[in-house]
Write a protein that binds this DNA or RNA. Sequence first.
DNA 1: GCCGGTCGTCGAAGCGCTTCGACACTCTCA
DNA 2: TGAGAGTGTCGAAGCGCTTCGACGACCGGC
Lengths: 334, 334
Amino acid sequence: MSGRTVTIAEVAKHAGVAVSTVSYVLSGKRTISADTRRRVLDSISALGYHPNAGARALASKRSNVIALVLPLRAGMHVPVLMRFASAVVTAARRFDHDVLLLTADEGTAGIRRVAASALVDALVLMDVELDDRRVPLLRELPEPSVLIGFPAEPAGLTCVDLDFAAAGAQCVTHLAERGHEEIALLGAPSVVYDRGTGFATRTREGFVDALDDHGLKGVALPCEETFDEVYETVRDLLLDRPGLSGLVVHNEAAVGHVLAALRQLDRRVPHDVAVVAICPDDVADRAGPPLTSVLIPAEEVGREAVRLVMDKLEGRAVPESTLLTPLLVVRAST
Amino acid sequence: MSGRTVTIAEVAKHAGVAVSTVSYVLSGKRTISADTRRRVLDSISALGYHPNAGARALASKRSNVIALVLPLRAGMHVPVLMRFASAVVTAARRFDHDVLLLTADEGTAGIRRVAASALVDALVLMDVELDDRRVPLLRELPEPSVLIGFPAEPAGLTCVDLDFAAAGAQCVTHLAERGHEEIALLGAPSVVYDRGTGFATRTREGFVDALDDHGLKGVALPCEETFDEVYETVRDLLLDRPGLSGLVVHNEAAVGHVLAALRQLDRRVPHDVAVVAICPDDVADRAGPPLTSVLIPAEEVGREAVRLVMDKLEGRAVPESTLLTPLLVVRAST
DNA sequence: GCCGGTCGTCGAAGCGCTTCGACACTCTCA
DNA sequence: TGAGAGTGTCGAAGCGCTTCGACGACCGGC
């Protein structure tokens, strides 16, 4: 067992080989005979050896750590973000990497710091705005990076996300097929649009374009997150548009309030008003009634982001843009 | 500007001093004349020097990284957890440390790995269960650790949390003062109690004990998170206990559903039923109506956890148990 | 039976930093 | 005035690992 910390030299002595041989067994960068490998591996587990991360990073110029930059801004739905984050951590481990968590307090200085100090090999950035302050920095950084989300000018970057425009359009198509003729999109809080967060804007664009394509009447509105504000928004919407019979909700925090408001306004779902949500599956499932929804494939996006960043680390070419196809699941609300 | 990466040797040459002098300027571990310090600092910013994290860790046996172990289990309210996490990151930066994010997939192996490889100097663990598999490991690890939450047997560990028993009691006291005679606690989902998560259990104990102290009638129930289940729970509760006029809700995900259910059952808040929540301030504020609540001081807990872990790293003695006093804020619901 | 080519292993040179002991000064006080 | 006690700085020895070049041993081909 371990008294003190075990070094590669002790493993080498125990196995009766050179230090470099142990290193090559571990990295597989040179061929090693089956017999020697066995002995080394046995010594490693006998002594409980763990390579020292600092020494490894110093010698190899690779820390095997990637940064996850997660600003946690106002109006963002945290459980969704954490799905992405969690998926990134899990995927990174598959590539034998760990994840350093960076929040927004330091601004871009934190990114610069962890990159310049070689604390991390690469970066994954979340909650990307259309005009994101981090983007110019990424362009000049030698470390590879991947964005989850798209800025306004994504050329030269590597971005991955759900195709929110297609998601917005798919909701419209679904409601059109159900025979609805006038519908509305309740989107993110207005602060999120003001900030120019890509996914909110792109959903709205997809929604509006699809209205035209299907010849539907409709409107796209931002939607706040307190019950009272949601109630007012829904009430006014129904007053203004008596013909409205379908609602697309792209706001995880408000979706429960929307359903409560409809109940209070004596509209039955889906009989009087059909509701489609864009949200994670479990949020849709947990609502009353369970909601037809376009799911946000957080696990897949996170996994893909890590795959891309690893490809870049290995010097492989990657596409600038990766858009995942949305999938609409029909439940009780339409 | 930086072409390649700048080393301490280049800084030393540029400033006309020895490498060790630069190091001492940076660490402050030996006295350096004001003049020399100036020159070194100037060279550092002229060259854009950033110490290499790996080299530093190797030489000093300190990585300046702490692990944040965040399992994200079922039934936990993620936005609340992320407040803690975010507070930990911010506080760690104050001490010039970064945060490595560990999730549950690897189980205890991940903890062992990052500790043994000296990737991290210390650990902060969240979402602690009464009988937590990580606890025995922590006891044998040479690296210091702090738990956010309390296991059943916290002796020998360092734990910090809101005093949930006091929080539960404080809600009862508040309702008693308002003249309520029969009340109920709607707590976490039953899976959380089954798992033996400390905070849920301790709130319930504080609640039940306080009922006795104040001579109130009452009951403590788990509470699921879908609207339909919440609705049934609330409806049955009101049927079974016609005299019930106060509700304590300790479940961030259900609190909106509880209010919606009460509306649907034609009970006005606070006129027919008073509601006190135990949740973050903004959740309480955003509800309809805004809720009297005991706030969960996530920022303070996170900050305190980091302070404790830094004290332990410096070899200072720390209390085994740190309980933060709950604070009840009166809003429109009582 | 000798030559070139693999294969498997070794030794040593760093990677960029911290830290220890040494040393030259300058003060202070007997 | 000289011993003793600071100051401020330097040089060198690692920290534990990866990687490069070297070098036997062994192989097949002619």
